[in-house]
Write a protein that binds this DNA or RNA. Sequence first.
RNA 1: GCGUCUGUAGCUCAGUUGGUUAGAGCGCUGGAUUGUGGCUCCGGAGGUCGCAGGUUCGAAUCCUGUUAGACGCC
Length: 411
Amino acid sequence: MQRDFSFEIVSQPNPNYPLMRAGIIHTPHGDIKTPNFNLVGTHGHVKFISPDDMWTIHAQVMLSNGYHLFRRATVISATGGLAKWSGWNGPTFTDSGGFQVMSLGSGLGKVVSMDMVDANDESKLREPDERMALVDDEGVEFRDPYSARIIKFTPELSIETQHKIGADIMMSFDELTNISDTYDYNVRALERTRRWAERGLREHIRQTALRKDRPYQALYGVLQGGYYLDLRAKAARDISSMTVDGEGFDGFGLGGVLTKQDLPSILTTMCEILPNDKPRHLLGLSHPDDIFVGVETGSDTFDCVAPTREARHGRIYAMDGNFNLKRSEYKDDDNLLDKDCDCPTCQAGHTKAELRALLKSSDIADHAKAYNLLSTHNARFIIRLCEQIRQAIIDGYYDEYKQSFVKRYYR
RNA sequence: GCGUCUGUAGCUCAGUUGGUUAGAGCGCUGGAUUGUGGCUCCGGAGGUCGCAGGUUCGAAUCCUGUUAGACGCC
């Protein structure tokens, strides 16, 4: 199979972190220098951040969602794929819709619990008859109560949809378990995810053959297993060794609801088993401490809604620690969001007082302005963090960099 | 001058035939937010019910007076 997709490692091994690396992912829409944070544009655009803004803040990747774009997949395909259709002409990822198995199913209407006090507590799960996503071995039935629309998503349909959308990198359709699911349930869900991965890989090979006129789209196999290390190791062995007609996955997605406490051991367990020469994407995490753990254990790319969502809610990232811009103490504060920031918002001189007023205004146009200025700021903060981590890995001063960052940020 | 209507939280208002510590939305204020059903979610402060009397076991609610505003009529 012809692939215009590859991964190269550009750093020397670090004895303190044997799995850590900096690299380059070569895709049909350009190179991704890793570690990198992918901006999340679920519906094909990042909320309140334009493609021009993305270039300005040195974003490298947009990650969209095959489930949310399902109805528009044919149009996107006809337009020439996600990059052209969205106006963002750089590298793109699509997620499979696997996250929605949980977020619209057992976790519907709840903030994703990452607290171990909820572990194994099935009473914390949404009742099946209240869920908008019902899972079985065949796939997932998504229901929309407003339109009465029902979509039966299967691994085959997810992959076919993602091929239509045409992102450079796709994710296999997986079942994400909730922290409240039991060990036994995780065993069953993991086996289901393994079978779905195989079915998806088979469909991927079929679709690739059907679309020879298009650039090759890479497919990452996704690893699950809850917070159980034995299941995580099994997932890593199963997915990394999986082949269909001699073809395997191009990279790996590290998925699941992962607590800060368990993150290092879970990531280490998986990445020690995964082959070193393929890229790994850590799904859904972007807080700086999580990124540090991720890169130290071998993750290359990250994505998360937190920087943009938290920006819209007034949670601002800054080198000396995050803060809530809505607090009254910033009402007359003429300082920048972060005096050391190179984002367009801080470079333009917007003050905390000014941005707070926009954010708290009753005018929807002011909101939009604030959301744009604050989202680009937070996004740039995490992107810059990844850029600096990459440079530190390559130039051999990672420990010093991390120490200085953490000392200020988590003071 | 007379008549009618209206005065309840910073704002807009609910308050059932009088019945425990008078509610809501917005605003204010604090927190949450991790592969985006989110201008979302959770919490807190804030009122001697225009004022003064009266009836009653008990009044935001009924009666009288008074005051402020709106409207109408001479």
